[in-house]
Design a protein around this nucleic acid. Structure first.
Lengths: 116, 116
DNA sequence: CTTGACCCTCACATTGGTGTGAGGGTTTAC
DNA sequence: GTAAACCCTCACACCAATGTGAGGGTCAAG
């Protein structure tokens, strides 16, 4: 599919998609006329990227996780350093989830307390 | 305590703390000489702010949740609109937690697969 | 009284993700 | 062939959070 369709399907702007591609987060083949051509996986991938961006990850960080973004990623670039990096990310994710869980509880407490 | 101590205790820069105060996220009394004076709650509050910022919340958004930031907040500014806003936040938090959980699983799969 | 470690305000700079517009090509349909 | 709806690159602009530096107070210890 072309960039417009991908944008429409994912809710991202065309601008953002081009940016993700340029940043290396998203692969796009080129047609002879220069148009980007995306595979069907791109939809899931863009959604994952956006979710992570909204969760406070940086494009650079997402890049370092890119092999985990899509279920169909089997290009295991395996080595010890990668493992260490993944573990680091894991710790960050866990911290973030704890923060969110805490906030979640407080917010729902607030909702419960609103009886006026 | 003064700003330097608060910064040291929370890991935030002095600059950031002043910014949070100016944004209305953090209350600070002033000494006669102009120095900011923070209560002990400020430490928890700054930590909460930073956790949320790192989870992708905006200062503006955090502001709208500020009554939930500290456990000791009893200034229930209760009304239906507030409730709606809280519910919205809750939905956003849940989405974010699902995204993170998904990523978490994929990352740990990756780690498990690294046997080389 | 001076020195050093604090604190203040103001304001410009930077970074990452986007918006937007200029200037221009391609394809489909009339 | 021309209009509409796509696509391209390039480049400037914006916002939020933070860094940083200038210029200047306060205060405790020597």
């Amino acid at each position: 599919m072309r960039v417009g369709e991908l944008a429409e399907r994912t809710g991202a702007s065309i601008r953002s998609i081009r940016y993700y591609e340029q940043a290396g987060l998203l692969a796009a083949a080129r047609k002879p006329n220069g148009y980007r051509e995306f595979g069907p996986n791109a939809v899931e991938r863009v959604r994952a990227i956006r979710g992570l961006l909204e969760s406070g990850f940086t494009v650079g960080e997402i890049l370092s996780l890119s092999s985990c973004l899509t279920a169909t990623a089997d290009d295991c670039d395996c080595c010890g350093q990668t493992a260490a990096l993944y573990r680091e990310k894991l710790a960050k994710i866990d911290l973030q989830m704890r923060t969110l869980a805490q906030l979640r509880e407080r917010v729902s407490e607030r909702i419960a307390a609103l009886e006026c």
